[in-house]
Write a protein that binds this DNA or RNA. Structure first.
Lengths: 175, 175
DNA sequence: GCCTCCATGTAACACGTTACATGATTCG
DNA sequence: CGAATCATGTAACGTGTTACATGGAGGC
């Protein structure tokens, strides 16, 4: 039940059309909750049907015509409730860990190439996050909203740091 | 495409019935790739149909009768191939990070309770992993299989450590 | 007129979750 | 014999992914 709330959050930050949302998911929210445009359009339809958002009056509903949405009070209420809900942490679900385990059974030949590739990708992602951090949070954030956004970004940075360190250790052991 | 390979790995470690697999997923493999029994039975059926595993001859196929599976050569080959496949890291997909971001928009009232609850759950999980580490790897592992299994466990431990540290920082900032 | 890009969708399928169904075995 | 437990499944649904369809606007 996360995607609808991700969309509500994005729309509260700024009313948008489906494609604009898709683009914003690609750079910002998508760093920790990704979604393709097909999923976004489907979900926008459901949210509108439930009365949590509405299409801005100016928008035409014809195909190929831009359609902007904004959040209704009921939508904000639903999001507020979701924030404090008791929802257990997702168990880890990572194919790479699984593959390392499988390598223990069928042999680790060729695994290091893939580990090196992942290491490089995580290093790239870390660099990207650090660029954003320097750009958006050059000084300690003052508003609560900024502090929370920075906190989320720190989460991303520390996760990438974990992967880099773990992959280096793995490569050392397999050398 | 991870579940079938998780099952192949588990079956190579030890031929099992559906329920035995379910239990082993609950304690071991499930720490980084969980699955319910319904999913496992469905997947066992598919793997058998594809000729990657087979039911042991002794087993009856009647409902309520135990049915053990073992991996066929084609199954081992498929798993070996998967280990070295180029498959990009999964983008992070975490509802808690999303909720913190949403809290930036609708207000963080009541969020700390949930963060404290998560902190406690992650501390429990870390303790569990450390118990397993002491039990299974009291001395540096010698075989490649053991080294790889330990590596995966280290991944779990470091991930939990990350969450604990991040949650503590978050709670400090929101205090 | 044609190509590209912007924009909104549909369809089909794979995967994961929740609820329920059915039969065999064991223990009191 | 009744209840609990072991064991294998079915059904329905929600979410995520891949492939494809439709239409408008601007540039050559």
């Amino acid at each position: 039940m996360s995607l609808p709330h991700a969309i509500l959050t994005a729309l509260l930050e700024k009313p948008s059309s489906g494609l604009e949302l898709t683009r914003r998911f690609d750079k910002s929210i998508g760093y920790f909750w990704s979604a393709a445009h097909q999923q976004i359009y489907r979900e926008l339809g459901r949210l509108e049907e439930k009365g949590l958002i509405r299409a801005l009056p100016a928008a035409q509903s014809a195909r190929g015509q831009k359609k902007e949405y904004e959040v209704l009070p009921a939508g904000r209420a639903a999001l507020t409730e979701w924030v404090t809900l008791a929802e257990d942490p997702r168990p880890v679900r990572d194919p790479l860990l699984l593959r390392v385990r499988a390598a223990g059974v069928v042999g680790a030949a060729g695994l290091t190439t893939e580990l090196r590739r992942h290491l490089s990708l995580h290093q790239q992602q870390l660099t990207e996050y650090e660029t954003i951090e320097k750009r958006d949070f050059p000084t300690p954030p003052r508003t609560e909203e900024d502090r929370l956004r920075h906190l989320v970004l720190r989460g991303g940075i520390e996760l990438e740091t974990f992967w880099i360190s773990w992959l280096k250790e793995a490569l050392t052991q397999l050398a």
